[in-house]
Every structure is written in C-alpha cells, then in structure tokens.
C-alpha cells in the first residue's frame, strides 16, 4: 500500500495498525520493517516512511488563523520534536493529529493530513477511531479519579478489547517503567501518585490501547530532572513500537531524544495578525548544529523567543 510513495529500495515498513480502508482492515500484512534511522540513510528533510504527511495545514479558531501553511512529515517509529516560542501553535498542530481540535467549538483545520494513506479529515473518518490509534499524553498529568488499575483498564474496556485485563495492565505499566513502583498498590487511587508517576501512568494508559502513534504535549514540563530522564528513556524505549511526536520547550530534551525537529514561530502578516508558522523542519542534528534559518539559530541559542 505504501510502495508507491516510498522511495526505499527494498521492503517497506507497514504500519502495525493501518486504518481500515473501505471497511476491510488490512491487518496481518507482514513485510519486514526497515528502520529509517542509522548513518547509511541519506539525509532528507522529509521522513522516508511517513506516518503523517502534512501539507498546507492551517488551523482556525473561529475566524482566527492560529497556524498557517504547515508542511511536514512524521516518520514511522521516529521521535519528532516540535519546538518554538509560546503561542506559536505547537499544541494546535499536535491536536490536529488525533483530531482533538474537533472538540473545541469553532476550531477547524484546512489543508491535508494523511495518516498513512488515509485523509485524516476525510468525510468517512471517525474521530473516535482516529484517537484510538493515535494516543495523547497531556502537559498536565490527568489521571482519572479511579484506581491505578482502572486507569489503565479504561482504554481497553471502552474499546471492547477482550483478553486478560490483568495482563494488559501489567504490560502497559511495565512498558511505562512504572510497574515496580506501583505493583503493590494497584488498587489505590491514581491521584495518590506523585506527579512524575502520574505522568508515567498517563503514558501507560495511552500505551494500553496499543496505539500506532503517541502524541505528547510537553509531558515533562511539570517534572523534576529525574522523572524527566525516566520519561525520556521511556520514549527511546517506546520507539521500538511506536511513533512519537513531542512538543517541548526544553531544547536539550528535543536534542537528546528526537530524530527530527520542527521549529515553529509566530509571524505577523501584512494585516498585522499573528500566525504560527513552521520555520524549519529537519533532522534534529542538523537543526541544532547547522540550521538553515537565522530564526532557528537564534531560538536554539537563546537569542530569541
């Protein structure tokens, strides 16, 4: 299905969780995965095996165009970081990827986002199905006011997952590096956990529904350096199975964890209205060592923003 677009010579990475096209889910296609990371891959700005292909994306809140004309790709099993000054539209773009913006009255996206081959905003696409495949971790940990166990089990339950819930819960918590800390108090209220534990619980909760992509909006902004390191390690770990998009204000974090970085900023147009724009999108090493745009350089060196 992705062979047409994919310039890789041998084999193509097939999404583990493709959107069902015209009713028939194409699960079970087993083509060997090819990692796009590694030194032998020639430098390209665009991801070679994109999960998302964004073209000409503009997002409106009512009449206000918050973000204008974004083009970027999110590579499969990569970590893509979105950086930029406050208010430049990072969260706005991120929330388009799982159609969370639909929930804001008056919010509207123009342009195109392809998820694998499917138009994410196509008429027949069910946003519920989209969110099931594209999970999200929020800036502020938001565990449900229930037990740790119920927090994890909730996603699989509402999605009608059959199977041993205990195993699902343990697996998700283990993947989120939280199992050892909470295995003895699994029935305790999740709100009794520390902030960092709560955030890892939210990650575990997102993993439990076995999504294809995990979107993270400043997941470490409320955490101390140790919890942050844990979550960063976790992200590295997760890229074996998941594609991650992360919004962060922490330059070092973007540099440490991400494969590609998108730098956004707010620009004032001819009418004096501020719009978020994507300034530069490239491999992270390139963005941080040799950015091609002056504004990117100023921002990452702390001279602007």
């Amino acid at each position: 299905m992705s062979d047409v677009r994919n310039p890789l010579p041998t084999g193509t990475a097939v999404p583990r969780n493709p959107m069902p096209t015209s009713g028939t889910a194409e699960i079970g296609v087993s083509v060997p995965n090819v990692s796009v990371r590694g030194p032998e891959v020639p430098r390209t700005i665009e991801a070679l095996d994109p999960v998302f292909t964004v073209s000409g994306l503009s997002v409106f809140y009512g009449d206000y165009e918050a973000v204008r004309g974004v083009d970027m790709t999110i590579g499969n099993r990569e970590i893509t970081a979105m950086i930029g000054p406050s208010g430049c539209g990072k969260s706005t773009v991120l929330r388009c990827f799982n159609r969370m913006n639909d929930l804001i009255p008056g919010a509207r996206a123009a342009g195109k986002i392809l998820y694998h081959d499917e138009d994410l905003y196509g008429d027949h696409v069910d946003p519920i199905e989209v969110r099931r495949r594209i999970g999200m971790v929020f800036q502020k940990p938001n565990p449900f006011p229930k037990s740790i166990y119920d927090n994890i089990a909730y996603g699989p339950k509402v999605n009608g997952v059959k199977g041993k819930m205990d195993d699902i819960v343990e697996e998700a918590l283990t993947k989120a590096a939280l199992w050892d800390e909470v295995k003895d108090k699994i029935k305790q209220n999740a709100l009794s956990l520390s902030g960092g534990q709560q955030q890892r619980l939210c990650i575990a909760r997102a993993i439990a529904v076995k999504p294809d992509v995990i979107l993270m909006d400043e997941p470490c902004s409320a955490l101390d350096p140790i919890a942050t390191t844990k979550i960063e390690d976790l992200m590295q770990e997760l890229t074996r199975d998941y594609t991650i998009v992360i919004v962060t204000h922490n330059m070092q974090q973007a540099a440490r964890v991400s494969d590609r970085t998108a730098f956004f900023t707010a620009e004032v147009d001819a009418d004096g209205v501020r719009h978020g724009r994507l300034v530069e999108f490239d491999e992270t090493s390139r963005i941080f060592t040799n950015p091609s745009d002056k504004r990117t350089e100023d921002y990452i060196t702390g001279r602007f923003g």
Partner: peptide, 9 residues
C-alpha cells in the same frame, strides 16, 4: 479530554 483521547465515545 483524557477519556476521549483514548478513543472513548
């Protein structure tokens, strides 16, 4: 938001 982001209706 947390619930909807998990694919709940």
């Amino acid at each position: 938001e947390g619930s909807l982001a998990l694919g709940a209706t």
